[in-house]
Design a protein around this nucleic acid. Sequence first.
DNA 1: CTGAAAGCGCTTACAG
DNA 2: CTGAAAGCGCTTACAG
Lengths: 343, 343
Amino acid sequence: MSVMTEIDRQRRPGPRIEEVARLAGVSKSTVSRVINGEQYVSAKARDAVHTAITHLKYSPNQAARSLAGNRANAIALIVSEQGSRVLGDPFFAGVLRGVHAELTGRRIQLLLMLSRPEDHDDLLAYLASGHVDGALLVSLHGDDPLPLRLQEFGLPVVAGGRPLAAGSVPFVDSDNFTGGLDAVRHLVSLGRTRIATVAGPRDMAAGLDRLSGWRRGLGEAKLSADLVAEADFTPESGAIAMSELLDRAPGIDAVFVAADIIALGVLKVLHARGRRVPEDVAVVGFDDSLLASTATPPLTTVRQDVEQLGRTMTWRLLGELAGDSGLPPSLLLPTSLVLRASA
Amino acid sequence: MSVMTEIDRQRRPGPRIEEVARLAGVSKSTVSRVINGEQYVSAKARDAVHTAITHLKYSPNQAARSLAGNRANAIALIVSEQGSRVLGDPFFAGVLRGVHAELTGRRIQLLLMLSRPEDHDDLLAYLASGHVDGALLVSLHGDDPLPLRLQEFGLPVVAGGRPLAAGSVPFVDSDNFTGGLDAVRHLVSLGRTRIATVAGPRDMAAGLDRLSGWRRGLGEAKLSADLVAEADFTPESGAIAMSELLDRAPGIDAVFVAADIIALGVLKVLHARGRRVPEDVAVVGFDDSLLASTATPPLTTVRQDVEQLGRTMTWRLLGELAGDSGLPPSLLLPTSLVLRASA
DNA sequence: CTGAAAGCGCTTACAG
DNA sequence: CTGAAAGCGCTTACAG
């Protein structure tokens, strides 16, 4: 049973487009054209309309615009996650800030939708019927079919982070591979030779690509790439992974950790097992989240600009909505190594 | 210059209410009544309509509903913050989850709006013209006039956390006072007598009310309440505050910290200055965020249920929108002490 | 309990 | 460059 909450109605006050037109001495059509930034409007009419709008504090009714214009003037930010744990993640927060920044000044609303894979059908039905003009997708796991299914409905989509599913949707991601590679090169330059990694989950590109970068770095240095343990994005799993690694290879002198939050658990175990950081074991994280600078010791880490990621996703989506040609199908954003005490 | 991004249009496919009516053998009016859960519809008509809707996979056009019904079928979640730092906060994440959970199954969209105080005018103009039916406000600072101004516009509002501004808007908050009181009672029961506090910012009720609880607890035990330092919600400020306290009163044997994230800095300083926790100094935090269980040592803390806070705010707002009478103007949610190693 | 009709406030061909 | 008119897809008195 879908419980509908009734909402009491009473016509909201405030001017309509009609009144703006009257005050400006033009037709509703012209006011509409000015509002929508169309090209063929005389400067005189434009000024008169702007003046009237300001004077009346007019703000157009979005529902009417959407209905008449057959566009929603809204995009969805879809968080596809089992427990929607991402929400508290600095990654998500950064993306959200970026999306918002890019939307500022355009009259496009941001609808936030959380959807567990088992609810995807409802979500698809809803989105397919024109409630938004496009969708941004974050925290896709494994081969989640959501992006492709949305695309089939004809809804423009941009993913944040490279989706692993077969087929392709446009995405924006940090250059995780190069980030991992740079981390290892740095460790090698420090003279480290037993370089392990605590990798991210292998059902996400961020996990896989950072791992590939680590492998490539070891290959370049002709070092063996055998010390791999996996963790999800929690300190606890990082602690377990690090323990395993130390059991397997007590002589580890460096570790590249796929996320700062995982590194928290890694540092804890290293400390507990009597290894000094960086003297005995150098540690490099990934993200440059707030955690990195407050960790003990402060963490050398690969910085990714998540706010820029959010901005770029939004820019790419809006470009597609506007029918821009020549948009890059996908984009990779640069990362950079931030040196602190841990390596 | 407000850059408008044009969005290409082409009538979205999919059934309209007309087709549902035809298939069900009733009028559009009746279909509308069924969709809106109105009372006076025969069971027969209702069933026919439901069948037709399922069959056609009909999903009503929200814009048309909003325009005709003069309601937005949307509520705003407004984050009023300077740097929108809150977004990465577990507090915000929990509230968001709760809001979303409460909205599930009702056809009400959630619009996320971030607004810095200097942008409030734009936000007010936008909201005042009927784009949402109500607003949820979080992370209000000091005497931010936003909630009252929204109320003046006739927009139903519920704040998350007690607003400090004069006048009153409905709010839902955790019982911060009792939480602080319980924390101190626990410390007293442990035999501690020099009980300090690292309080939260005094421009937020969460800061003030937890501090009041601490004061009251000390009063009950006839202990002096002179050891107060203030911090904002960062580990760094917590570290500074704890250093000050130790300088002023080296004999401190307990400290109540207004938030787990602040406690991180407190623990760091205690460790650095050679105090064992809990042997020398017992520490109680607030929130029971993920940080509490992964801290060293794991943190005894006052748990608040932020997801419940989000749910309750939403329930209160929807109740008001539905015209329910007898709604409590404001609500205080219980907190509970979670015992771990630090106290 | 139900239907025909008006109307919500815009946008957009169309004609000029 | 501009305006009159139609129409977007619903909801809602009104009458029955």
